[in-house]
Computed example of a mutant assay.
Amino acid sequence: MSASRASRFNQRSLAPVLFLAPAILFFMFYVIFPIFQSMQISLYDWDGLGDKTFVGMDNYVELMDDEAFYTSLKNNVIWLVLYMLAIPAGLFIALFLNQTVFGMRLYKSLFFFPFVISQVVVGLVFTWFYDPSFGLLNVILGWFGLGPVTILGDETWVTYGIIFAGLWPQTAYCMILYITGLNAVDPEQIEAGRLDNAKGWNMLWYIILPQLKPATFIAIVVTVIGALRSFDLVSIMTAGGPWGSSRVLAYYMYEKAFSEYGFRMGYGAAIAVVLFLIMMIYITVFLVKMYRDEKGH
């Protein structure tokens, strides 16, 4: 190999590394390092300012007898299950918006709108929507002669009310992913399916959805992460109430580490580690399943 060819080969090899290096360093410093730091802090009794006292696995043992932890864990499971509704909802809205009809730009703008507003605004909007005095929900119920319902003040319904609020922007996000995926669907496969008399559900299931697997993968991962880190809506809409019934692990971690509970950084870090492990298990199982499906083909 000549010197000029070797130089060009080295440049081609080094270029990707040089471009990726800043992002990798950023990811390592702000994501990977804090994960291991949280694992280390979870082994200590620490208020965030004074000296640390090593307690080993005591924080995790205490979690096993913490009723508030189990309430938060149960609510996170409910979030995980119901938040998955955003994926099929986003898909069907994307299929609707992929049509060529009059006023479609307006429809796209309306469905896209929840994605561009912050979670704080979403929380405030739905807090007003659920208000038992003047909220739109109870106004509509009043038209049918039904009494006011205090969604955010009822231990049974509060978590479902917050999840419904979260589904609004999450569905919009999944919709955007699927619209992008639909733009990349091979039209030749669509035509071939039509020649084979495939239409409706068969066209969707056997021809369109297999080509949307990358979008589905991203949608599931992002939705799972969104369900497990559901902090802002809980904080804005209920602050964990009533009586802690709407807590999730992310909010309970905040309460223990930074709130009036005594700044127990070690205990909060233990909750964060549990939340991280749940997230990793869920996503790993999904990745393995996707890999096996791809290998099977």
Rank of each mutant, 00 (worst) to 15 (best):
T238K: 03
A257D: 04
F102Y: 06
S133V: 14
N76Q: 01
I93H: 01
A86Q: 13
I117Q: 07
V139H: 02
D196W: 00
P34I: 04
A172C: 03
N75T: 02
G147K: 13
F29T: 10
S259D: 06
A257P: 11
F36D: 11
D51N: 08
W128N: 09
D196T: 11
F36L: 10
L177C: 06
F113V: 01
L204F: 11
R12E: 03
V101D: 00
A86K: 10
G123V: 05
G226P: 03
S245E: 05
Y178V: 05
A184N: 15
I283G: 09
N202I: 10
F144G: 12
L91W: 05
M237Q: 01
D131R: 05
Y44L: 13
S72Q: 11
E155C: 10
W205N: 15
E260S: 15
P242A: 15
L152M: 09
L25K: 13
D293R: 14
T284E: 03
L91I: 02
G193R: 12
G123W: 00
K289D: 04
L110Y: 12
D131M: 08
F258C: 06
Y282L: 08
G262I: 00
Y83P: 08
S42Q: 05
V234T: 00
V17R: 08
A239I: 07
S38V: 02
M39Y: 12
F144C: 10
Q170A: 04
A215E: 00
P187V: 12
M175E: 01
S259K: 01
V121K: 10
G48K: 01
V120I: 12
F69M: 04
S2C: 07
L63A: 00
